[in-house]
């Protein structure tokens, strides 16, 4: 098949033109170019300057016939995931904060006494810069795990909510969903 026609086919494929329609257009074009060549001419006699720009020619023809794939279908923005993730994250962080404050007040006396017995407060530097949390929770080993879980859930929840509403997330339908498009199945006039 003519190189020009091959280029056109590639462009039609890229544009989502259905194969039967692309085959038909390619066959017509091939026959016309072959006829021109048999008369001593070339593809330029058939398609003019477009012979040097097959992508543009193929695109114009497909659009004129109305056989390109429909525009990308994007779902309307879904707000609930952002709300849900944000709510979960904020709740977890709030619960963590309340627990820290409450644990700090209730155990302050115990901490003071234990600290005195141990020769001063001990800080477990699991989280750099936040030894207070662990100072409060070091007397309740189970609570440390809960605090860690709350912190992780909070950070992840707020992070995911931010991903949903981020301005660079053009689709606004979720960070891991891709936009879908489907080629037109057929042209009723073809």
């Amino acid at each position: 098949m003519n190189e020009f026609v091959e280029e056109c086919r590639r462009e039609w494929r890229r544009l989502g033109v259905a194969d039967p329609i692309a085959n038909e257009m390619a066959a017509d074009l091939t026959a016309d170019i072959e006829e021109a060549e048999s008369e001593g001419g070339s593809a330029e006699d058939v398609v003019g300057n477009s012979a040097f720009d097959p992508q543009r020619f193929a695109g114009q023809w497909a659009i004129a016939r109305g056989v390109t794939a429909p525009p990308t279908i994007s779902s309307p923005p879904r707000r609930w995931p952002a709300l849900a993730f944000g709510l979960i994250g904020c709740t977890a962080l709030l619960a963590l904060g309340v627990a820290v404050l409450a644990g700090g007040r209730q155990s302050s006396a115990a901490i003071a006494s234990v600290s005195r017995n141990l020769g001063g407060p001990k800080s477990v530097h699991v989280f750099p810069g936040s030894p207070v949390v662990l100072q409060h929770f070091q007397h309740f080993p189970g609570a440390v795990i809960v605090a860690l879980l709350l912190l992780v859930v909070g950070v992840v929840g707020v992070g995911l909510a931010a991903l949903y509403v981020a301005p660079w997330n053009g689709a606004r339908i979720g960070p891991w969903e891709i936009r879908r498009h489907r080629p037109r199945s057929g042209d009723p006039r073809a």
């Binding site: 257009m25 477009s50 004129a64």
Partner: peptide, 23 residues
């Protein structure tokens, strides 16, 4: 000379889409 700058194929496609020609 219709083929100086372009070609008739896109135009034929539009005429067909608009129902002005039968094929």
């Amino acid at each position: 000379s219709t083929v100086g700058e372009g070609s008739i194929y896109p135009l034929l496609g539009r005429l067909e889409r608009d129902g002005l020609v039968e094929t």
